[in-house]
Design a protein around this nucleic acid. Sequence first.
DNA 1: TTGAAAGCGCTAACAC
DNA 2: GTGTTAGCGCTTTCAA
Lengths: 342, 342
Amino acid sequence: MAAPKLSDIAKRVGVSTAAVSLALNKGETTRVGPKKRAEILRAAAEMGYYPNELAKALAERRTRLLGLVVPLRDPIFFNQFIAQALSGIQSTLMRRGYNLLIFSPSGKPGRETRDQIMESRFTDGLILINTRSCTSQDVTDTINELKTAGIRFSMINSYYGRAPINYVGVDDAKLGEAAANYLASKGHRKIAFLSGSATLPAHLELTKGLQRGLSKHGLKLPSERVGCTQYERERAFTILDEWFDNKRDQPTAIFTADEQLLLHLYDYIEARGLSVPEDVSVLARGNVGLGDRLRPRPTSLVIPTFRMGELAAEMLIDEIEKPNGKSQRVLLPFELAPGTTA
Amino acid sequence: MAAPKLSDIAKRVGVSTAAVSLALNKGETTRVGPKKRAEILRAAAEMGYYPNELAKALAERRTRLLGLVVPLRDPIFFNQFIAQALSGIQSTLMRRGYNLLIFSPSGKPGRETRDQIMESRFTDGLILINTRSCTSQDVTDTINELKTAGIRFSMINSYYGRAPINYVGVDDAKLGEAAANYLASKGHRKIAFLSGSATLPAHLELTKGLQRGLSKHGLKLPSERVGCTQYERERAFTILDEWFDNKRDQPTAIFTADEQLLLHLYDYIEARGLSVPEDVSVLARGNVGLGDRLRPRPTSLVIPTFRMGELAAEMLIDEIEKPNGKSQRVLLPFELAPGTTA
DNA sequence: TTGAAAGCGCTAACAC
DNA sequence: GTGTTAGCGCTTTCAA
């Protein structure tokens, strides 16, 4: 018994498929007489009719599906940042009646975004979350590709350019400055910056901000005190060893650029038996959901990741539903979350 | 400039749409002559042609989309168990060329599954992950609904019935027995069980197993030593207070039924200033990715959640692609992961 | 080898 | 008001 379709109902009741479609979908329209409608509804229920969303979507030229693009090799679901953003996205999608399509990475390195663009004929638009593996070049390339393909999208994080796109992020230069300010006002003179990679957009912004902030306190950020771990634990340990073996120039405070780096730092602190903040102060960027479970509780400049997802989805759906609107670039405020480490 | 379609290419090259479809999709078939094919391919590339997956899907009656159903009110992306399973699912989907559709919860309580079944006309099949909020009744109801709707699916976790469905889980009775065995052999006589809710399928299985295991050591699991927190922190604290205020009958070991309960227990232990395992031993079920970040590191009976997701997806896709196959019920082995708490 | 044509199941424009 | 019809963009027989 194949699934009943619109025309089956039509045949049974003795009306046109159009009438059935109308009766079923356009609630209180006048297009169908009340008793004909009742008959149709009853038949549909009896036959256990469910619409074929696919056919519907093809005819309406819209799927109410948004695609998620995460240019990242790692499994995306373990990343707290992404988890937060996804929750925010979901909250909007739920409210507006959309669903989320998660593309499986193609496996062919570099081609992911392109492939996902192709698949996107299945979706009404794309949400892009930039992660620590996106260079500034990657990001602008992607933007161009999407623009020329005429695909609607909305981007989260790590784009500091000026192209007119839907974007939600934070002002990382400002965040860096705030970090410098905070630590310097606490009396720290030797402040180190633990980062991922010097080529990351966020790294550049944060560094800029740190320098600006420090210079207001008559301080500097010498390159020996900027450590790029490439997100490798080993490398992080090497860098930290260098900092802490050098008794004379040992930093008294460390600012970490993201969650992963903070975890490595915690591991190091535990391994070396340091006390925080006695031996060294720690200030972290990000790490939203993590703060609760870490001991000691990190002092952080928290990024509103959930809200970012929520907003990005909102902006995208707005653009889809009323194509006249302008694209927006939104920078959300960050917040100091007190912990015991700085 | 609307997106070019098959017929645009056909018109331009001067062939039928069928020829274009063949040339583009059926690689080395003999249906199209080599130079005609070359021409078609070139034209397609020049015009920047991407197929409309929607139309394709409608014609082929398959989307290569799998839907995810999580009957849970909470944001699903924060649940480590689900995150693990999702990663496993993704790994299979990637290998087999499918994508994942995440339904947004409808908001109407109780209707979620039904709604998602309707939406499922968009997908080739459904993956269901049962969580701690699923009663045994919920699960069987869902199974029946899906069966009568003729929807293919594959279920993860918490179904201990015998219906012939694709299912991946662990033998929780056996796990409970193993827990009892482990703790009893370490000399514990007063073993308590911290669980979520007495109505959960897993609770029943675990209890059964614990009792079986304990009785082999001449021990019992009195009802005072089974605590159901309803996953509320307050309630957990009340129960634990009762256990620890009663000096005479204080448990020397606690077995926790899942990750969330373990976290509450850790909070309690910290708040009350207990030492583990000196004051009390802790053995946890599950908590795969969490173990690394918790201090002290929990001793756990680890469930292969990633593998569960991987397998569930595999089984579902197999059934979709060769409908003759039988459905399978797979119970995966759990493993003792040593920590410092028991 | 190739082209024409009939769907896939639904919506929406257009007659009646 | 109600029914008819022409698509949506692609795949796949079936003739030629």
